[in-house]
Design a protein around this nucleic acid. Structure first.
Lengths: 255, 255
DNA sequence: TACTCTAATGGCACTGCGTGCCGTTAGCAA
DNA sequence: TTGCTAACGGCACGCAGTGCCATTAGAGTA
């Protein structure tokens, strides 16, 4: 029964799990090589399979399609992300947790710079491969969104759904930006510094004001200095302060 | 020469531009109908073409692939967006302009609720259609990102690239959220109210603090009420206020 | 060592997408 | 009416993806 792709095989007989991983990788490498060498459309599945020393039918037991051949096994990373979410401290800023999650994806690409850079050359030029790539990003984004929505919901956010979707997209985009920058550099720049910078941007953008205050960050011109006599009636104090906060020039009001 | 899809046809002979649009729409409707009725894989291009009264070969003159059949003509909308960007007031908040741009996409879907809702039923269930949908969103997102990056760059933002990518993703996600909510409602809820809410979220998240102040929007707990005697030395006033703004409990300080 | 059981393999045939080619048809211009 | 041109339809071809099935390889058992 265990045959077709995306199944979790028990190592019993025939090829072992390690053997499967190895052949899968060999097919990926062969595919990338052929695609770069003679073009994507011009390469047939037969050629890829023979290059890896297996039959055409076997290729389709490892990959759903010709396009899938060059992509890493996202299922594994998705599982890691789910685990990270399950184990995450509920008191921690959800956006930070989401950033940690995409950090796993980043590490996954960093683990094999050779293949990652070559794959990038293909996804940039072949439309159908790019579509696949985008689709996989979307899968990550949805997992992030589900987590963030739940966390925002638990925090009593009235627009948890919206904020979760948008924040997830931002986190995913930050990841993509850092990854692509690294890929364009040929795998030779300081990813983690850029990642910190990018994650900081989205964390700042999507944290509640209270949380921003907790981290000691304030918008620049929030300072309101009220100079009032002690005899000023309380309602006046309130209205002048609120006017000042709205920037309607109450700072020019008489004491 | 003018034959294959995605070409800008001069109306000279044969079928006119209006005629092309009509047939294209007829094919889309036929495809959606068949897909919903008997399933996506179970429907052949031959069936769709015959249902629209044309030959199979003609189908592929209107759509690159079977998947494309159910999608609207994004090229048109992309052109509209480019025009909007070109005409946009450079003094306007770039994120607001980007929101206006995706508003065009939203309107495009709203123009034909019947088809949009049916298409949504398909993109939710058929993986390959969903991938295509996601790919089209990505195209919009890239156009948004290019605009935002340029604008942020012009504003002297040192991380214009990053901020542009992330903000574009957020705007696109906000659009998707609103659109999908509307689609799930069957095309019967107040889209524009939700759109305003969503656009406000991303605008707030990605505007410079100065701009936030200009729009008179403040985080909820920024209010600082200082009660001080007129004899308090100025340095004390300053330090107590700044402490209060950091939430370090200066509000409990002695007057 | 021999046997069994099971999963992986590879070949074959089949459906259907996408495309190149080409003869035919339909509308526009003189 | 006579070109002219673009869209149409049919045919054939390559190839992706899949169901089917006989064969092979390796682990466990006696």
């Amino acid at each position: 029964m265990p045959d077709e792709p995306s199944r979790s095989p028990r190592p019993r007989a025939g090829r072992t799990t390690a053997g499967r991983r190895k052949l899968r990788h060999a097919l990926t490498v062969a595919a990338i090589e052929k695609f770069l060498e003679q073009g994507y459309e011009a390469t047939t599945v037969d050629e890829i399979a023979s290059a890896a020393g297996v039959g055409r039918r076997t290729f389709f037991r490892y990959f759903r399609s010709k396009e899938d051949a060059i992509f890493p096994n996202h299922e594994e990373v998705l599982r890691d992300i789910e685990r990270l979410f399950a184990a995450a401290d509920p008191a921690r800023n959800p956006v930070e947790v989401a950033c940690a999650a995409v950090g796993l994806v980043l590490d996954f690409y960093l683990a094999d710079p050779e293949v990652s850079v070559k794959r990038y050359a293909l996804t940039r030029t072949v439309p159908s491969l790019r579509d696949k790539e985008v689709a996989s990003v979307d899968r990550y984004q949805r997992v992030l969104a589900a987590y963030l929505r739940a966390r925002f919901e638990a925090d009593g956010d009235p627009i948890a759904d919206l904020r979760g979707s948008v924040a997830a997209a931002a986190v995913a985009a930050a990841h993509n930006h850092v990854l692509r920058r690294w890929l364009r550099s040929g795998g030779t720049d300081d990813v983690h510094a850029h990642a910190r910078e990018a994650f900081r941007l989205v964390t700042d953008a999507f944290s509640e004001p209270e949380r921003q205050a907790e981290r000691g960050e304030q918008p620049a011109d929030q300072t309101v200095v009220a100079v009032l006599t002690t005899t000023t009636p309380l309602p006046d104090v309130v209205s002048r302060l609120s006017a000042a906060l709205r920037g309607t020039g109450a700072e020019q009001g008489a004491p």
